[in-house]
Each structure stands twice: as C-alpha cells, then as structure tokens.
Amino acid sequence: MVLEAKGLAKHYGDFVALKGLDLRIASGDVFCLLGANGAGKTTTIQLFLGFIQPTRGSATIMGKDVAKEGTETRRYVAYIPENVMLYPNLTGIENLEFFTTLAGKNVADADLLGFLESAGLAREAAFRRVGTYSKGMRQKVGIAMAMAKGAVALLLDEPTSGLDPKASNEFSRLLLTLRDQGVAVLMATHDIFRSKEVGTRVGIMKHGELVATLDTGEWSHADLENIYLQHMHD
C-alpha cells in the first residue's frame, strides 16, 4: 500500500478537524476527496506531509509512519498545492533543479528540461524567471518536480481551482499519465466532474469524517453529484 491512514485524527483544542480516518491508496489509484471547506481535506493532506502532527492514529507512506520518519517518507511524495509558489527571481529550470536536489536527486539539465516539456511547459519559458509565469505554468513546474523526483505518491490540494478550462484539462491529462505509470494520488478537490474523469475512487468528507467512498466506474457523473449534495444537506 502506498498511502495509508489508520484511525487518523487531528484536534485543535476542542475543535476536531479530522476524526479517525481510515484510508488505503494503492499504486495507480487516484483517490479524490470531496467536501465543503473545513471538512478536513487539507488537514488529511498536511498530515500525510507531516506539516502537522496527528492527535491519534497514523498516516503511513510505503509502510513508514509519517509522524516518526517524516523526512524519509517525504522522499516518496510530491506535493502540489492550489497555488504552486516558486522563487520569482529564479528561472523555471533553476527552481526545478533546486527542488529536485532538495529531494535528493541529481538530475542533468537536459533531463530537467525534458520533464518540464513533458509537463507541457514551452522550452523558452523554462529559461524565463518564474515571476513572469501564470498560475498554470507554475502548476506545470509542480508536475515536473513530481516527475523528476520519481514520486510514488502525489498529494494534491485543489490543484485545478483557479485554472482556466484549458489549463485544467491539460492538468487532468498529465495526472492520468502519471496514474498510468503507477503513481498513487490523493487529491482534495471541489470539482466533481474532474473527480469522475481522473479518479478511480471518490471519498466524500463532512465534519472531519469520510461519510462515503464510491468507485467512479460504478456511478455516472449525475449520480455522483446527487450523492454528494445529499450528504451535504443532511
């Protein structure tokens, strides 16, 4: 199992952000977390990244506990937030090189360029400072970072929100490519349509709990939307 949560819980004082989440995501699996703001989606992702410590339970990546071996587990994952923020004074390729080296990889410039191109970034753009990039272009650098790192798991926090439909579509196709290569994906999103398109499973979260898990193959888009809304109305 690539990503696994067992009874994962996070409390902030009296406020319970996540209560006892159980989740298993295998290689080639794309698990989409749906839910309103504050349902616990981002908390889940941050727990997998080790940015915050769980109150109870555990999050493991490739069988290793994030809370105990945070540095080690971060070798396997790539993180793409809603807004990929890079150093504006460095070029795209310089940023990629920096983050790849931090990840412990030593990748040749030509290969880095290759990753950027596979992520859909034009060659000339790679040599411009990131300060001039659009949000979608930075997102592509984020994908290239995941590729260059050879990540086995992707943690995505609303990666397509704020992207225009074309960029959003490109992003989805990149994600499918990575999925086909066997990467496990955990994606928090509001977008039911994209979930159905790229996801293998969809989990609906509410008040820190996973209230339903559905296989996308078994349900139509309209069904998914209905089920989601039903849960939201309860």
């Binding site: 990244l49 080790g50 940015f51 945070g70 540095t71 080690e72 587990t73 971060r74 070798r75 994952v77 790539a78 993180y79 937030p81 990929v84 923020m85 890079l86 983050f99 931090l102 990840a103 412990g104 984020g142 970072m145 790192k149 943690l155």
Partner: peptide, 9 residues
C-alpha cells in the same frame, strides 16, 4: 510548503 514537502528538515 514545497520545500517542506521534500525530504529536508
């Protein structure tokens, strides 16, 4: 956020 998602403390 991106830095800390890498294996570096």
């Amino acid at each position: 956020a991106l830095i800390l998602s890498q294996p570096v403390s």
